[in-house]
Design a protein around this nucleic acid. Structure first.
Lengths: 352, 352
DNA sequence: TCGTTTACTTACAACGATGTAAACGATGCG
DNA sequence: CGCATCGTTTACATCGTTGTAAGTAAACGA
């Protein structure tokens, strides 16, 4: 049996409340008493019972993180970042997978598991703007992603339009004028695809380059194989292009294979650009130019804002946060850096 | 405020214990009473308070999963599998990242967070066989991986030697005799690298092919860039080879790029084989032949065994579980299947 | 010396659930 | 008709913690 406050109190010769006070750093404790209590705690290797503490305080010290799937790299890296941020703030993260399914997402918002967490960071994929009302829940909630805007909660997201525009401008600066896109969604306005395509169009317009619908490759899901297929279709259509902008890294990596297989040199014949700055982009050949949409900042902000809400006394109007992005030039868009072992100085490894 | 047993009892006109009995399906409840209680529960949208239940019962309904890093694909997919298994068994998974650091791993075994979980599935990377005594802990623990054998706990792992042998034999059957290895660890005996290399040697021996040390590429970490570097070194060394066996998929994918860049055709000039069956191997070009080490089975077994331990009354001797593996022939080792959109029928996607 | 403040400590009652033991009414048996 | 029995329900204590209010002792000023 684990030691309790009672045991510690007995050994230290004080009341359990005094022990509790020592543990919670309450003022007005005589140093000598504190000393005795700490010794007793050490002697018994006492650790507070978290269930009891939760029951009493109404706080669990955990926050939820709901995302589509860990096996999608973007979300695995997001989870990694959120866990690290949470750790710095002294809270624990409980991950839940939705599979990107709208009904599961909605169900999760009122699942009994919400009891285990003091708040939720929620990255929906199936829900849309029309579902915003489901976000009116009785606990602190921070929304991520591009599925719902102007919802009733705090929202942390990336500058999709600006970042995609900057990425496109980067390609234009490299002398490319016929820039194909891979991953567009038919008719989408919000959502990552719609917003990033808008940024692309803004960049073209600003540079006086006419928009050519023939250069737009549509896909349904953003998986590697779709990037490959869309690129194959572009090649087969005979349309000329000197660059490809994958609306995310996974698509771009799919495109990379197809381009290479077709005998095209990257970046000499076709420059290539992704979006997300997945770890993987540092290890491809050539390394993939991409946009860091500020994932670390998004994670940190989401955790911070959620904890603020959890600790807030009065309700406040929902706020919107936009992370800073950064275009990262690597080999696939014609960086002139020497080709050494890619990323050798910054690798994080899996051993044995 | 959320409803409590008390509120429900009041509305139903019974005592709180009766409500508790209804919820826990205790026998001897008059149907009429049960009915009234259920109605009251529905009316108030009552959900049991999990902290209170934990405090009273000593169970949290959560299990821990400790692994190096979610941003390593293998572990992200393992976590995904464990979460799904746990869900089927009605328990929640709490993920913890160790970074593969020995001290963090040891610390985590007695962290206060262990209080939040009824047991732990632990995949160490930094700890070694000498640290086995740290695994003598006061809660159910299931060990994964190849770092510690004959430890004091249940152990679920893969048939590294047999699987690597089968993978090598597959290459031999395809007519390859000069099979290079990428990812060996100098002097390692256990650990994934040591065991898989042993399987490789066994296959050679059985086929009467002499072992050639010049064909072994050493790396430290198992990252993509290391696979690339080791392969580049093999090419530079001038040693002849007609196949490469990457000791994991990540290494093999790194090797794939270098081979292609060198103008070698896969599989015509060099056959390529990985290990792990990452999702990614289905989307590379060519698709990567690999070994499914039974990840799904490992996850399912680990969860099942852990829950058995949690529910066990008497202690039992530790057991060892070995998952079934399966060699998966894809294009990189000369599969003759038609090259269609890779994996089109089995993709799980990321939308928008 | 006494009253008053300050510093420190304590007893007690929650938080919301569940196990125990006892009580209750209805039934069956002698 | 009284007593045991069964099925059903209840009151109460308990899990380990923390907030509240009250208590004690020491320190201070008058």
């Amino acid at each position: 049996m684990a030691a309790t406050l009672h045991d510690v109190a007995q050994i230290a010769g004080v009341s359990i409340k005094t022990v509790s006070n020592v543990i919670n750093d309450h003022p007005h404790i005589r140093p000598a008493t504190k000393q005795r209590v700490l010794e007793a705690i050490a002697e018994l290797d006492y650790h507070p019972n978290l269930s009891a503490r939760s029951l009493r305080s109404g706080r669990t010290g955990m926050i939820g993180l709901a995302l589509p799937e860990l096996s999608l790299s973007y979300f695995a890296e997001l989870a990694d970042a959120v866990i690290r941020s949470a750790e710095r703030h002294g809270v624990t993260v409980l991950i839940e997978q939705t599979g990107g399914d709208r009904d599961r997402e909605i169900g999760l918002l009122s699942s009994p598991r919400r009891q285990l967490t003091d708040g939720l960071i929620f990255s929906p994929l199936g829900m849309g703007n029309d579902d915003a009302d489901f976000l009116r829940v009785g606990y602190p909630l921070v929304l991520l992603g591009e599925r719902i805007f102007k919802g009733p909660t705090d929202h942390v997201t990336m500058r999709n339009v600006d970042a995609a525009r900057a990425a496109t401008e980067h390609l234009i600066r490299r002398g490319r004028r016929r820039i194909a896109v891979v991953g567009a969604h038919e008719g989408e306005v919000i959502g990552s695809a719609g917003l990033r395509l808008r940024g692309y169009r803004e960049a073209l317009e600003a540079a006086g380059i006419p928009f050519d619908p023939a250069l737009i490759g549509f896909t349904t899901l953003w998986h590697r194989s779709n990037g490959a297929t869309a690129t194959r279709e572009l090649l087969a259509s005979g349309v000329e292009f000197d660059a490809v902008f994958g609306l995310n890294d996974t698509l771009a990596l799919g495109a990379m294979r197809v381009l290479q297989q077709a005998g095209l040199r990257i970046p000499e014949d076709v420059a290539l650009m992704g979006f997300d700055d997945l770890d993987e982009t540092r290890y491809s050949l050539p390394t993939l130019s991409t946009v860091d949409p500020g994932r670390a900042e998004i994670a940190e902000t989401a955790v911070r804002v959620l904890l603020e809400r959890i600790n807030a006394t009065a309700p406040e109007a929902p706020r919107e946060f936009l992370a800073d992005f950064r275009v990262i030039e690597r080999e696939s868009s014609g960086s002139r850096e020497p080709v050494t072992v890619p990323g050798a100085s910054e690798e994080r490894g899996q051993e044995s």
